[in-house]
Amino acid sequence: MKSYLTLFLSVILFTSCISDDEVTCTPQTDEDIIEYIESNDLVTTKTASGLYYSVNNEGTGETPTENSIVDLKYKTYFLDGTNTSETESITLNLSTLIPGLSEGIQLFKEGGSGTLIIPSELAFGESGNATGSIPCGTVLVFEIEVLAVYDNYEEQNEAAILQYIEDNNLTATKTESGLYYVVNNEGTGTQPTSSSNVTVAYKGTFLNGTIFDESSVSGVAFNLNGVIEGWTEGIPYFKEGGEGILLVPYTLGYGENGYNTIPGYTPLAFDIKLISVNN
Rank of each mutant, 00 (worst) to 15 (best):
L51K: 01
T251D: 05
L274S: 03
V182W: 10
L122N: 08
D80G: 07
T96A: 15
L274D: 01
A172V: 09
A201L: 09
P192Y: 09
K75H: 04
Y77Q: 04
L116K: 00
N169M: 11
I69G: 00
T171P: 13
T266R: 01
N67M: 08
E66I: 14
G59Q: 01
V23T: 14
N184I: 09
I12S: 06
F222W: 06
S215H: 07
D20H: 15
G178H: 06
T29V: 02
A130I: 11
N157W: 13
D30P: 07
I105W: 02
P263T: 04
D213Q: 12
S195N: 15
V277Q: 02
G258N: 10
I262R: 00
G132E: 07
E88Q: 02
N40R: 08
I272K: 01
A201D: 08
L107D: 01
P192T: 09
S95V: 09
S215I: 07
Y180H: 15
Q156F: 08
D80M: 04
F238I: 09
A48P: 05
G125E: 10
A172E: 08
I18F: 11
E240N: 08
D41N: 14
D80I: 07
G204S: 13
I262Q: 05
V182L: 11
D167F: 09
G178S: 03
P64R: 05
L224D: 01
V146M: 01
S177K: 12
K46G: 03
L79Q: 03
D213I: 11
Q191L: 10
L51E: 00
S113Q: 03
S10F: 13
I117S: 00
T199W: 07
V55P: 00
K239H: 12
P119N: 06
F222L: 06
P27V: 03
G226Y: 14
D41C: 07
S177H: 14
A48C: 09
P267M: 12
K203Q: 14
T193E: 13
N279M: 13
E62D: 14
P64D: 04
P249D: 06
A269I: 02
E121N: 13
D213P: 06
D21I: 12
L170D: 05
V248G: 07
T24C: 12
L7A: 10
D21H: 14
N83Y: 05
G255M: 10
Y180W: 15
V141N: 00
E158S: 13
G132W: 08
Y202G: 09
L42P: 03
T210M: 05
G253M: 02
G104Q: 04
N40S: 05
C17G: 14
G241N: 02
G112Q: 03
G264A: 10
F206H: 10
K73C: 00
